[in-house]
Amino acid sequence: MKLTLKIWRQKNANTKGRFETYQAEASPDMSFLEMLDVLNEDLISQKQEPVAFEHDCREGICGTCNMVINGEPHGPMQGTTTCQLHMRHFNDGDTIVIEPFRASAFPVIKDLAIDRDSFDRIIQAGGYVSINTGQAQDGNAIPIEKETAAEAFDAASCIGCGACVAACPNASAMLFVSAKVSHLAHMPQGKVEAKRRAQAMVNQMDEEGFGRCSNITACEAECPKEISVEHIARLNREYLSSSVGSQVKA
């Protein structure tokens, strides 16, 4: 199949970017990234700079790959990362527009590669259970309802790719933050410091310059792991109760 690609090229964070148009050949069994690999091989053979894009596991789990394809983070297939998107979902002759995730808290490094350190700093602010190695009791000491564990898992399946931010017209990171807050608040081990965690992570999120959630739910619609905005409600609950409650100090 023949494709026209309009790809955002930007030398680095300080230069202006623009769209470049390329013609590409693909087979329907290729993944989207393999299609870009072929384009890059082609560019290299013409001694041109390949398109910089980040990727790693190519199994949809590491969260490295990003890019907005035809206006949607990770492209048109729901519940699918870019690396798992296959060309059979496109048609011969299609024009595909490829852009980086756009948000102030995700500055562009080069072309489609972006910097997502802000997510790490949010986790560092409190996205953990405060125990040291060796302090654990037996794994079966606290029974956990099967459904509760499953719900916690749903939230914990977040891959930290940032598609929620990219999809959100407000560039809000609420789905990411809420997934971690909700995962840990579901588990008895994480419940203990749930309030403090919600406060700390939201504060950090605000400091990083993410936008305010207005419940547009584009994040859920575009999340490659289909994480629900129910978790955002849970975060709101934890945050509200910790703000007006007495556990977290004034």
Binding site: R102, A103, R212, A218, A221, E222, S228, V229
Partner: peptide, 15 residues
């Protein structure tokens, strides 16, 4: 927070 650039293609998928 959104930054200076807008997406070239707009899709309004919500849940």
């Amino acid at each position: 927070a959104r930054g200076p650039h807008r997406y070239a293609v707009k899709v309004n998928r919500v849940a």
